[in-house]
């Protein structure tokens, strides 16, 4: 079999994952895209291992390790996403902008949000803003969300 087939497939899968990481709003979807990228790498590892006939089978061993690490990563990642969601009432990546450089921090974040929202709504249906912080969460997180807002 030509090596080009798996290599090209891996490259395309990687770029698909890349697009997902850069374009998706929901943090969990971003994690999925990361999985795609990891798998693209795995495919490369396996294909080159088979091609090289390595006696140590480094490629396949590393693939196994990657899968294990990916499992750990997804566990930790999901825990972080859940913690963020509990505190913010949202897991949208582009709303986590506390490090933005602003004069009037909140006002400008809101303005940026509005701009983003406008650009989103320009190519989509009338959109639904994320609920006000804490409205849909339990009592414990309500106090937190109020403290942060």
């Amino acid at each position: 079999m030509h090596l080009a087939y798996p290599a090209v497939l891996a490259a395309l899968l990687f770029c698909t994952g890349l697009y997902g990481v850069l374009a998706r709003r929901n943090a969990i979807l971003v994690l999925m895209s990361v999985e795609l990228m990891l798998n693209a790498v795995n495919l490369n590892l396996v294909a080159f291992d088979v091609w090289l006939r390595d006696t140590l089978h480094s490629g396949q061993a590393l693939t196994l390790f990657t899968i294990a690490i990916a499992a750990a990563e997804i566990g930790i990642g999901l825990a972080i996403v859940l913690a963020v969601y509990r505190n913010r009432g949202s897991s949208d990546i582009d709303r986590l902008r506390d490090t933005a450089e602003t004069d009037e921090a909140d006002a400008e974040i809101d303005a940026a949000d509005a701009a983003d929202a406008a650009s989103v709504s320009a190519d989509a249906q009338p959109h639904r803003r994320a609920e006000p912080a804490g409205k849909s969460t339990n009592a414990g997180t309500t106090t937190n969300a109020e403290a942060t807002s």
Partner: peptide
């Protein structure tokens, strides 16, 4: 991942804001 989606109350059905404002840049880079 499915559990995570459920725990963060991901909307069932079509979600209009699944993509961020960065998508065209992302497309170009990808």
């Amino acid at each position: 991942l499915l559990f995570g989606l459920m725990l963060t109350r991901a909307p069932i059905g079509r979600s209009p804001d699944a993509d961020s404002g960065n998508r065209w840049v992302a497309l170009g880079v990808a």
